[in-house]
Computed example of a mutant assay.
Amino acid sequence: MPLMLPSGPESTRSIAGVAHQLLAALRDGTADLPPVRSAVLVVVDGLGAIPLRAHAGHARTLSSLMAKKDIAGSVFPTTTASALTSLLTGVAPGAHGMVGYRVLHRATDALVNQLTDWEQAGVDPLTWQAAPTVFEQASASGHPVFAVGMPKFASTGFTRAILRGAQYRPARSAAERVELAWELADAHDGALVYCYLPEADKAGHKHGIDSAEWVTALEDIDSALSRRVPDGVGVLVTADHGMIDVPRHRQLVLDAAGGWHDGIRHIGGEPRMLHVYTEPDADQPRILERWRRDLDGLADVVSRVEAVDAGLFGPLVTDAARERIGDILVVARSNRALYDGDAEDQRGRDMVGQHGGLTLEEWRVPFIRMGAFAR
């Protein structure tokens, strides 16, 4: 049976709608956001709503502002390349084409890491991700537009794919980035300012979301966001996705010795959501049946057609996006992860916190209003 996105009373708001809401707030406002002088979008990479609530004592500013219904749903897959692009374009992955962490570039028959491989893969960010960004739309309407992030991200391919239209302003620490974002919003009436905080995601991947390191990152972010917001400036704090801890004994290694590479040309995606690409002459229905049988109870296995028909990648899937989606998709259940045992780089097996799947921990993110947006 095809997978379905999580649903429920708190899941009707999507991160894919945030971009247009912020633009509307610079004009007449929306049901969620009143009109403001300037708007700031703060994205805390990897901060799920459930882990935030579980560690509320370490995030007193954010938790005090977060009501029960202050929740948004991420997109599928729940990974940065897909979800952050949806946040900043207002469309689902099927429309913007960033359908996973590592996907197949069929022209070169090679996997492309959509966060880091742009230059070496010879991929043009302007055509690979062709959907207009919120920054391009805001700039075309005459709004000053800024993106505040870490210095090392200033000129990457991923930045050019999702932040085009914004003036990039680097700052090193979370506190410095928040301070700069507030200053820009205050100094430029009508401004749209994006502020990216990746510290929690980094700590979670390395140590897990229940670790002292993750808690310290959360405390630092919360402290940075406790700074007074300038008058008339609305701030929205959200995330691209959440995270779940995967202990080593919950990993499953898919290697050639176990027959997992029979008829398989590439295994992409990430450990919580694999894009599996079959050989051109492979018996795809047989492979799909075998993977479903052998992963029963461990992962959900669907074909590309089933995933697209179920709307997992959104209501529209472009031809370019369809080409990048795996012939078979494998979504890990519970807190499991699946690894390509024959991949050259096995460093990913050291990751504790992971995402990409469809648990509520990965899918539900905060939607917190601050400053002139606060209720």
Results as ranks from 00 to 15, higher is better:
A200Q: 03
L65Y: 10
E213N: 09
L65C: 06
M98Y: 13
A107C: 15
A138E: 01
G268H: 07
G371I: 14
R272E: 06
M243L: 15
A217H: 03
D319L: 02
V42Q: 10
M66V: 12
A166Y: 01
V330N: 07
S226K: 03
R169L: 09
A212S: 15
E344M: 15
G190Y: 02
E179D: 14
P35R: 01
G94E: 08
P2A: 03
V75K: 08
R272Q: 06
R265F: 14
D340H: 11
E176K: 10
L52A: 07
L87A: 09
Y194F: 09
T12P: 03
R248G: 04
L41W: 06
W128I: 05
D300M: 07
N113M: 08
W214H: 08
V91M: 07
F367T: 14
I71R: 02
L62T: 04
G341L: 07
G157L: 13
P230L: 11
V302S: 04
S226L: 08
P315W: 04
L47V: 01
G157W: 10
D189T: 09
L192V: 01
H205N: 12
A54F: 08
R106D: 13
T79N: 01
R322T: 11
Q137I: 02
T278M: 01
T108L: 14
D262W: 12
P6C: 01
G157C: 10
C195F: 07
M273V: 09
R304K: 13
A161N: 03
I50C: 00
T238Q: 14
V44L: 02
V75L: 12
P51H: 00
V301F: 07
R169D: 04
A83R: 06
Y339G: 06
P198G: 01
H143M: 13
M150L: 11
V193E: 05
M370V: 15
R369A: 12
F313I: 15
P35A: 03
V246Y: 13
R286S: 08
A332M: 12
A256I: 11
L295T: 11
D28C: 01
Q114H: 06
V18P: 10
Q354R: 15
A161Q: 05
T79R: 02
L163Y: 14
V330G: 05
D201Q: 05
A25F: 00
L87Q: 03
Y168H: 09
L360H: 14
T156Q: 04
V145N: 02
P285F: 00
T216I: 10
V99E: 07
E183D: 13
L218W: 09
L184Q: 11
V99G: 10
F146D: 07
P34T: 03
I71N: 02
I267N: 06
T78W: 13
G263F: 06
V40R: 04
Q167N: 02
H275E: 01
D222V: 06
G341M: 11
Q129S: 03
R292V: 04
G258N: 12
R347E: 12
V317L: 08
A200V: 06
L3F: 10
M150K: 13
I328Y: 07
D109K: 11
T278A: 08
A140P: 09
I162G: 05
V123D: 09
G190T: 05
T61A: 03
G8H: 07
H143T: 11
R177S: 13
H207T: 07
M98E: 13
G232L: 10
D189I: 01
A191R: 08
T79H: 00
K68S: 03
P280N: 03
G348V: 11
L87C: 05
G100C: 05
L126Q: 10
